[in-house]
Amino acid sequence: MRTPIFLLISLLIAAAVFGAAIAAGNDYIFFAGYVVMQYVVLATAWNILGGYCGYVNFGTAAFFALGAYSTVAIYKYTTNNDTFPIPIPVLMLIGGVVSGIVGFGMGYLTLRLRGAFFAIATLALAVVLETLVVNWEYVGGSRGAYILRPETVPIVGNYVRYLFLIMLLLAVAALTVARLIEHSRLGYGLATIRDDELAAEASGVPTLRLKLIATTISGALMGMAGAPFPYYISYLQPDSTFGFDYAVNSIAMALIGGTTNWIGPLIGAVVLGTLQQIATVTISSAVNLLIVGLLLVFFVIVAPNGILGLVHKYLRRKPDDFVGRRRIGIDAPEAAPQSVPGTAPGPSL
């Protein structure tokens, strides 16, 4: 399937989701749905580096918070100087650029590290950035920052609906980018890095350049997901914005869904994100982490390749060689999007 058609279908599905949420007639759905969509973006972004390329990033929160704090900085600037407030889509682009640049920088400094060492370095990045923000008075420091958001926006009406809509569109964009990468020359290159970097270099793959592209895109998408967050939460505080749960959740969602394919993080984020939202309302918000932990343990034991791996295993029993045929179909005119694509071993830690 060509990308424009994929985009069109995704937009139609997004429109249907939005319509269904309106029809449900409960604004809490938008409030909870925003978080789920945010995790679709974060898990998808994480997967571009972690799943496709095999580099496990524990710094999701850092990139997310960078996007959020770019928004806070700009918000402070516009309110202090009484200038016209910048619309959220523009803030998202700015957050994306900031996080993308930091992603590139982080990549340049750390990509010579592999495996657990890279993961530790990304964790350190989050700590360093949090320290910087805590000591940055302009964006509120450790006290945090308040954002006054308008009650309504034209056309959409309720502001939370507007935020949900924006995050829904960003999710569509992120999935489109991920799918585009996966089916491209870049995607093949990233897969060779995941499998064997030495052999990749020997085959002519410029590994450092591809890894930098992956960290930049991944970081930028995380930053874009973070940019509207201050408007959603209205009180932004370093502690929670740099919270470790963003990192853990986005990794868990990608792993639970399946990492070698763009659908994996989508499934993982929708399943796990929804479960967490339901648990928050019905039991308590502290149960969230328990759910993540239990599901991860379950999947590591039962389905190490995630939900996609399970489906794929089931399909593989029938036709011979499903993996192969699907893989080939990637460049040739594409197979149906609903078909579950070839999966492979997940990222190596």
């Binding site: 290159g189 897969a191 995941r194 990749a200």
Partner: peptide, 20 residues
């Protein structure tokens, strides 16, 4: 031997064609 374990044989061969 250091094959690309998640790619089919055909794709293994395709990498140098695409990148070199």
């Amino acid at each position: 031997p250091r094959p690309f374990v998640s790619l089919t044989l055909l794709d293994n061969i395709r990498i140098p064609l695409l990148y070199t």
